[in-house]
Design a protein around this nucleic acid. Structure first.
Lengths: 221, 221
DNA sequence: ATATTTAATTTCGGATCCAATATTCTCAGA
DNA sequence: TCTGAGAATATTGGATCCGAAATTAAATAT
């Protein structure tokens, strides 16, 4: 687990963390305008660090910005969701292939540990912890590729759909499925079988898309 | 040519433009720390819009940031350069394939116009204008794909190596080569031949890498 | 009642100021 | 001459304040 021992070094980092959390939990809903004054006061900071944090989120596409109009929490249409997953498919394939060339036994151990955390959190019903562990799992592989820009792009893509992944995990049948699929991924990594790994990753991603369709369909009504 | 009729809507945009230009022209050299006070005064603005512009550049990887230490213009090692081109290869293939499905005759016309601008600027020896027109050429194709995140990623990757592309164009033989290769690209687009287009684009990219190697080798000494 | 103009209010963008941290410089001691 | 402690300086991060633009509300005319 990540331990947040002391408050972040700078206020902007603190604000950034809080904003991410607020977006993830829906406290800042998609489409909602961000009132800097109110939000800054609520966080107990001035608007300066808030605005710098928002600039970061803008760069990641988490919020949209129009000069003199301010920031709005980004909305994700089905089209956008599909783009994110299409790009993930392409970039994660590259990451997986590069990673297999370089991956160490220590990395594989970390992969297994992260997976164990996913399962434990899942059984405890702690969706947030499960999402965090799941991310560690996948980014252990991505990090092994040793491509910082690729890593950053994937990080942005993951962030964009964080909300819906949590939704996906909230169903128990999906949690079982994740468990099973992670096993397959670990096996493919152990065997250093790139094609198999890519296939497993594709299969693993497929589940989430239908959850998004259901969710937005429900939202429409 | 882009006409900068009136100053940008906001000061941060003005500052952002200036910073990009300064990095591109080497007035802000890689590895050089950015002194906010001095730079802000030089631009005739306060530090607030400067800092917001720097946050954007940080997100794009153009500058690096360490809390309480400030911003430094990013340096590009050979390894980084190769990563950028590897990612461009992957993402531009996707963009090209998607674009061919959707591209209109008007897009093709714009492609030809952009190419004409490249040639004209090249003959006039205006490297900056040539680089701008070249970018318009390639992003006409990328835009046709209609994938905003893909577009943004590619924009970041292009920005990261802008300097070296200008270097590449400064040699006349390279300019001729670009002319010829752009023709091939336009032909492939006209024929809606995706595989051929991807092959042409790969070939087109290949040239720049050696320029980078030469440049850094010279810099080492 | 609706549309349009005008006034009031909200909100944003930027400048200035101050505190906290990093860096540089000075000087004593080994 | 080199090293380390401490002071002086430089630089960043954040708060507050103000002007400008956008939004909302009110008032007038159609």
């Amino acid at each position: 687990m990540d331990i947040e021992a002391r408050p972040p070094q700078t206020t902007q980092q603190y604000v950034l963390d809080q904003l991410r959390r607020a977006i993830l939990t829906g406290k800042l809903a998609p489409g909602a305008p961000i009132r800097q004054d109110a939000l800054a006061e609520q966080l107990g900071v001035s608007r300066v660090p808030l605005r710098e944090a928002l600039k970061i989120l803008e760069g990641e596409g988490q919020v949209t910005y129009r000069p003199r109009r301010g920031y709005v929490v980004a909305e994700l249409a089905l089209e956008d969701f599909l783009e994110v997953y299409r790009l993930r498919r392409i970039l994660e394939e590259e990451a997986a292939r590069q990673a297999l060339d370089k991956i160490t036994d220590a990395d594989v151990t970390r992969l297994e540990e992260a997976h164990a955390d996913v399962v434990n959190a899942g059984q405890a019903g702690d969706i947030t912890a499960m999402a965090a562990a799941n991310r560690r799992f996948h980014f252990t592989l991505i990090d092994a590729a040793g491509m910082p820009r690729l890593r950053r792009f994937l990080s942005i893509l993951w962030d964009a759909t964080d909300v819906y992944r949590s939704l996906y995990y909230s169903e128990e049948t999906n949690r079982d499925r994740v468990d099973h699929e992670h096993h397959g991924i670990i096996e493919a990594v152990r065997a250093r079988d790139a094609d198999e790994l890519v296939r497993r990753l594709d299969e693993h991603r497929a589940g989430t898309v239908s959850t998004f369709r259901d969710f937005t369909a429900k939202r429409e009504t």
